[in-house]
Design a protein around this nucleic acid. Structure first.
Lengths: 153, 153
DNA sequence: CTTATTTGGTTTCTTAATGCAACCATTCTG
DNA sequence: CAGAATGGTTGCATTAAGAAACCAAATAAG
């Protein structure tokens, strides 16, 4: 059957996953954050099949995460660049990277450091308005009327 | 062909996606963060097929993101609960939720608020060691020797 | 004890996605 | 013009996803 759509579940997480939640999309975005812009470079760096890469780039462009820029230089040459919306995924990618390093001990070949000081970044945390760090135990899920969430029967 | 493995790319993001990067896993985790624990409740709240849910829960348990607890109450009854590793995905899920609300205007049926004050949370940001907010333009990717990253030929 | 129900799970079958290789068209280089 | 680079597309085999039916254990109802 056709794959389940996630954009009409009334869930923002599901909606986000509908755009960047498949196997490759977030890796393409991460690669773009490293500076990769050209089709062949994405292909070589990620080891992704050309048709899949083609499909993912098109979808990312359609969703406003990346833009395709024509740079008439050699052959048919384009550049794929992140939009503001795409760059804003930096938080998500970084949080995911840190989570993986914390729990899987998977050392990335590339370390992410402050461009100025060269120091590693601080762990990404969720804060309340006063700047206090919160865990999932410190928050509530409420509907528009402030009623707490409950499982449906 | 068999799906590409992401756990041997030397990339922590790829490694993370290998565990929670498919269509449903992160939604199951998000649902667990809302308090859902039982098989049928996951099924009803997410609208996921039973075999897929079964597969995802097994994988999440195998990867140490959730645990299956036997609560011998009625029929074969189990509870699926987040582990510390699973709860630590709160940052990722929250960042993804906020990204979606910022760019898609998709209002979630459930709002996430501070459990004490009832106020909405602060936006998740990436900080350096001194607490200064960083964008993707403010960071560098370097290898073990401090050399900046470059596209492979 | 017998029957029905709840719960968690497997099987079967159809459809969609993934991956690989081959092929194509355009544009630059020599 | 020949050849290579770039960015695709197409065809085919394999795998995953989704829906519905079926199953087994344990409990509740009678």
């Amino acid at each position: 059957m056709t794959r389940k759509r996630f954009d009409d579940m009334g869930c923002s997480v599901a909606c986000a996953l509908n755009e960047v939640g498949d196997w490759w999309s977030l890796l393409v975005v991460k690669q773009a954050m490293l500076g990769t812009r050209r089709f062949v470079d994405f292909q070589h760096n990620l080891g992704i099949a050309k048709n899949i890469l083609c499909n993912r780039l098109s979808r990312l462009v359609d969703n406003g995460v990346m833009v395709r820029v024509d740079v008439g230089e050699h052959g048919k040459r384009y550049e794929y660049r992140l939009t503001d919306k795409g760059r804003d995924l930096f938080t998500v990618v970084t949080a995911l990277r840190q989570w993986s390093e914390r729990w899987n001990g998977e050392k990335d070949a590339m370390q992410l450091v402050d461009g100025q000081s060269g120091e590693p970044l601080a762990p990404v945390v969720v804060n309340n308005q006063q700047g206090k760090a919160l865990t999932v135990r410190d928050v509530r899920f409420v509907d528009e009327d402030g009623k707490p969430w409950e499982d449906v029967g």
